[in-house]
Amino acid sequence: MRLVFRCIACGTSYLPPESMTYSDGPASPLWCTVHQAVARGRGIAEPPGAAAAALLMARRRADGPGVDEPARPDVRPSRPARTRRAPKPGGRRSKLS
């Protein structure tokens, strides 16, 4: 199962290898390869809680809608129903008002 992730730094979607490892180290579920290299160069560690949450969300997206979730949300009409409203007595405006 291939998981698609979104970089939290630049917002691009990326597809790491199935093994979640690159030739130079493990793949990050939070950062694309560019931002992962920048963070590694600056000595910034990947937050384990955020990485676990990103993995969980990617797995849920890959599995598709769950049993409890409907495949399509409740569909509403694109415009309101046409109704004819009766004119109110004295509802017309004159030139003086």
Rank of each mutant, 00 (worst) to 15 (best):
R2K: 03
R2D: 09
L3N: 01
L3A: 05
V4I: 15
V4H: 04
V4F: 12
F5N: 02
F5R: 02
R6W: 11
C7D: 14
I8E: 12
I8S: 15
A9M: 09
A9T: 12
C10M: 06
S13K: 12
Y14I: 09
L15F: 05
P17Y: 02
E18P: 03
E18D: 13
M20H: 10
T21Q: 15
T21H: 13
T21P: 01
D24E: 06
D24A: 07
G25D: 01
A27K: 02
S28K: 09
S28L: 05
L30R: 13
C32A: 13
T33K: 06
V34L: 14
V34A: 11
V34F: 03
V34Y: 05
H35L: 00
H35K: 06
Q36I: 00
A37Q: 12
V38Y: 08
R40M: 07
G41R: 09
R42H: 08
G43F: 00
I44W: 11
I44T: 00
I44M: 05
A45I: 05
A45E: 10
E46C: 14
E46L: 04
P47Q: 14
P48R: 01
G49N: 13
A50R: 13
A51T: 06
A53H: 14
A53P: 11
A54M: 06
A54K: 03
A54E: 03
A54P: 05
L56Q: 03
M57F: 09
M57P: 04
M57A: 10
A58M: 09
A58Y: 12
R59E: 03
R59D: 07
R60K: 13
R60F: 05
R61K: 02
R61C: 04
A62D: 05
D63M: 04
P65D: 00
P65I: 01
G66L: 14
V67L: 12
D68A: 14
D68W: 14
E69F: 00
A71T: 00
A71R: 09
R72Y: 05
R72C: 02
D74P: 01
V75W: 06
P77I: 04
P77V: 13
R79H: 13
P80R: 11
A81G: 03
A81P: 08
R82V: 12
R82G: 09
T83F: 07
R84P: 05
R84E: 14
R84I: 15
A86Y: 10
A86K: 06
P87S: 00
K88I: 05
K88C: 13
R92V: 11
S94C: 11
S94M: 00
K95H: 11
L96R: 15
L96D: 15
S97C: 01
